[in-house]
Amino acid sequence: MRVVVQRCKDAKVTVDETVTGEIGKGLMLLVGVTHEDTEKDAKYLADKIAGLRIFEDDAGKMNYSVTETEGAILSVSQFTLYGDCRKGRRPNFMGAAAPVEAERLYDYFNQELRAGGLQVETGVFGAMMDVSLTNWGPVTLILDSRG
């Protein structure tokens, strides 16, 4: 499982001109699932993200997590995180999990974040989405449950 984490001042996702998820300060997550992923991967990343210390304290050090700052999460499914561009000019998405399994693990991942007390907004799995955010810092990290 792979997640692009972006610290943001605000973020929203729109489907067919309707806002399906919107947050203020917090984390914007792009979430990809591959064939080998399990609930263990989803739980690991949810726990990691909830405790990830990327918000600054009064001294300007990254010492606070989204949980500690009472931030929110906007989680958007993103199968293209498993796009392979090594050959040719068109990405190959064979590394992405099948939609039914990917959606199940994506939903489980979001449930785990919510179970940790976080407000989680989402897009619509499999839909064409418009995503916007104000990346704060900017701070962008890539997490992978496989190391």
Rank of each mutant, 00 (worst) to 15 (best):
F109C: 04
M1I: 10
V76I: 15
K43Y: 11
E17P: 12
G117K: 02
L30P: 04
A11E: 10
V3C: 09
R90D: 03
T140Q: 14
T134W: 12
Q119E: 12
F125Y: 11
A11W: 06
F79I: 06
M62T: 11
S65M: 01
R53A: 09
S77D: 01
D144K: 06
Q78N: 14
R86Y: 03
L29S: 11
N135P: 05
D57C: 12
L45W: 01
A97R: 03
Y108P: 01
T140D: 06
R7C: 15
V19Q: 12
A127W: 07
E17W: 04
V13M: 03
G21M: 14
C85M: 14
E36H: 00
F55E: 06
Q119C: 13
L45M: 06
T38F: 06
I142C: 03
G60W: 08
A72R: 12
E17A: 10
I23G: 07
N92M: 13
P91W: 07
Y44H: 13
Y82K: 09
V120M: 05
R114M: 11
V66H: 08
D84T: 00
S65Y: 14
A102E: 03
G126R: 01
T20M: 15
K40W: 05
V3Q: 02
T69K: 15
T20L: 14
Y106H: 08
P99C: 00
D107W: 00
Y106I: 13
G32Q: 00
A98M: 11
E68H: 01
G116D: 12
T34P: 00
Q6I: 05
G116A: 04
L141R: 06
T69N: 07
W136Q: 15
R90F: 09
D84Q: 02
G32K: 04
G123Q: 12
V33W: 01
L30Y: 06
